[in-house]
């Protein structure tokens, strides 16, 4: 896995999200009211809605298409719904964000 810089934490509004285009698809990067950051696949387990466009509350996001609520910590659907999205490793260093991507060597070469 390699850590890739995606920009500054201030590029994302609090209680908001941005998306990042990567070779493995769109990734949604979230910043909570308390400045915690999370990265998950930008693809709701229900009907593929863009989670980066949802309303962020606590450490969860509500999908804009059909209001599924997805935990940013686990990627799992909360409440009565079942399903999950992949979470992506993310770290903050001196205000800069890095996500951890695993790309196989032969494809990268």
């Amino acid at each position: 896995m390699s850590w890739v810089s995606i920009g500054s934490i201030t590029d994302i509004p609090r209680r908001g999200a941005r998306c990042v285009e990567t070779p493995i698809g769109k990734i949604a990067v979230f910043r909570t009211a308390e400045d915690r950051v999370f990265a998950i696949e930008d693809h709701c387990p229900h009907k593929g809605g863009p989670l980066s466009q949802g309303i962020v509350h606590g450490t969860a996001v509500t999908c804009p298409l059909h209001n599924w609520v997805i935990s940013l910590e686990t990627g799992k659907a909360l409440g009565a719904d079942e399903g999950s999205v992949r979470t992506i490793p993310i770290k903050v260093e001196a205000g800069m964000l890095f996500i951890g991507l695993v790309v196989t060597a032969d494809r990268a070469a």
Binding site: I12, R18, T22, P23, L101
Partner: peptide, 17 residues
């Protein structure tokens, strides 16, 4: 304007260093 474009676009080369 941040709403309308990705925060970053990562190519294959970036991801594999």
């Amino acid at each position: 304007k941040h709403e309308f474009k990705p925060m970053a676009t990562i190519g294959m080369a970036d991801a594999a260093e």
